[in-house]
Design a protein around this nucleic acid. Sequence first.
DNA 1: ACGACACTGAACCGATTGGTGCAATGACGA
DNA 2: TCGTCATTGCACCAATCGGTTCAGTGTCGT
Lengths: 115, 115
Amino acid sequence: MVNHMVQHDTLDRIYSALADSTRRDILTRLGEGPASIGELAEPHGMTLTGMTKHVRVLEDAGLVRTEKVGRSRQCRLGEERLDDAMAWISFYQRLWERRLDGLEAFFTLQRGTEE
Amino acid sequence: MVNHMVQHDTLDRIYSALADSTRRDILTRLGEGPASIGELAEPHGMTLTGMTKHVRVLEDAGLVRTEKVGRSRQCRLGEERLDDAMAWISFYQRLWERRLDGLEAFFTLQRGTEE
DNA sequence: ACGACACTGAACCGATTGGTGCAATGACGA
DNA sequence: TCGTCATTGCACCAATCGGTTCAGTGTCGT
């Protein structure tokens, strides 16, 4: 029906932030220490405006924290630890292992006897 | 360089497939056993066409495998184990822990001597 | 053979994405 | 104060996304 309630929950924001190699590169780079927008943009041959948008996406996901320092903006890793993202993948992997064990049919028969 | 540099296309597809709660729900459902497009669509109040598109996205990411059986399409979990997706997050978490330890500056000085 | 059923293809829609260029803004250095 | 420098806001663009409707196509049950 109407699923407009929460247009972007946390997991949505995190996974879609990670779904771009430029942004994953930014995180890798920031793992080595803080950087300005210009320093992040240069290795990708991207405009400052474009890089600012990527950083904003990462910041909205909590993966990056930024602070205006003088005329430049210092970017560093943020508070988001990806625990939830990791937990979801672990959960999926448990499902997958169950599939691997050929328990699908068994589990299917059990549906209705639980939540 | 470093071993977390997998095929970014694959990682892009996987993370963007996961960046939607409807698709995560589909995976959870398929973890309980195979289902048709209709069975997947019904709990979301979505059209069959809409659900077919979601399933296609998951299939392109390797997370779902489908097979036409009679007039319905059977969907089950696919071959993708999310090992790369998990590995990348683990890699990020190591960066984050290093940040937490306040070793950013130290690490910056050490650039070039890493594994 | 016929009708109901499950899905698919195509066209369409509004919103978002990933990028650009250009004009401002605001801080630095001489 | 003046020019330069780093970033930002705005408008714009083409492509993709998440969803719909409608018109098929092919299969099943009787």
